[in-house]
Simulated scan of single mutants.
Amino acid sequence: MSVPAIAVHRVPRHPNAWWVVLLLAHWLVAWLWWSYGWQVALPLLAVTHLAMVWGTLRPDSRLFGPALTRVATDQRVLWLTIDDGPSDETPAVLDLLDAHGAKATFFLVGERARRYPEHVREILRRGHGIGNHSDSHFTRRFWALGPRTMRDEIEHAQATLTEIAGIRPVWFRAVVGMANPFVAAPLQRLGLARVAWTARGFDGAVSDPRRVLRRVERQLAPGVIVLAHEGARHGRNLETLTLLLQRFDELGYRCVVPVPQMAGGPDIAPVETRLAD
Rank of each mutant, 00 (worst) to 15 (best):
V77K: 01
L28C: 14
A199T: 01
V212I: 07
T81I: 03
R254N: 06
V47Y: 12
Y116L: 12
H229F: 05
P186N: 06
R211H: 13
H229W: 04
E163A: 13
W34R: 14
G131I: 12
W171A: 15
G85S: 04
A99F: 04
H133Y: 12
G110N: 09
A113W: 10
V271H: 15
L78E: 02
L238N: 02
L213M: 06
V8I: 13
P15S: 10
A199V: 02
W197I: 07
R10K: 11
W18R: 01
A159N: 05
T273K: 15
G146L: 01
D84Y: 08
V256F: 14
G252C: 08
E230Q: 14
G235W: 15
A7K: 01
L245T: 00
G129A: 08
R13F: 06
G166F: 03
D249C: 02
A17Q: 15
R214A: 05
M150C: 09
R274F: 11
N180Y: 07
N180S: 05
K103L: 11
D98P: 03
R236S: 09
A157E: 04
Q39F: 11
T240E: 00
W33N: 05
D267M: 13
R236E: 10
R247F: 00
M1A: 12
A269M: 07
P222M: 05
V206M: 14
G110E: 10
A113F: 10
R141S: 13
Y116Q: 10
L161V: 05
P15H: 08
L50I: 15
A92T: 08
H9N: 12
P15E: 08
A41P: 06
A25Y: 03
R121T: 05
N180G: 05
R114W: 07
V195C: 15
G204A: 14
P147Q: 05
Q219P: 07
V71L: 10
P59Y: 13
L96V: 00
W79D: 03
A184K: 09
H234Q: 07
G166Q: 05
R189T: 06
R112M: 11
V47D: 14
G265K: 13
R148A: 04
E217F: 04
Y253N: 01
F107W: 03
G201V: 01
Q39N: 10
G264Q: 13
I6G: 01
F182C: 05
V175A: 02
D135R: 11
G85W: 10
P43M: 10
A17V: 14
G204M: 09
R151I: 01
H234F: 06
V21I: 13
H137G: 07
V175H: 02
H128I: 04
H49Q: 11
P260F: 09
P270G: 02
G55Q: 03
D60Q: 14
D208T: 08
P117V: 07
S134P: 02
D208C: 06
L23Y: 11
V206H: 13
R200M: 12
P260M: 09
Q158L: 13
H100V: 00
D152G: 12
P147F: 11
R233C: 09
A46Y: 04
R173G: 11
G131T: 10
H100C: 00
F248I: 00
R126D: 08
W34Y: 14
D152P: 07
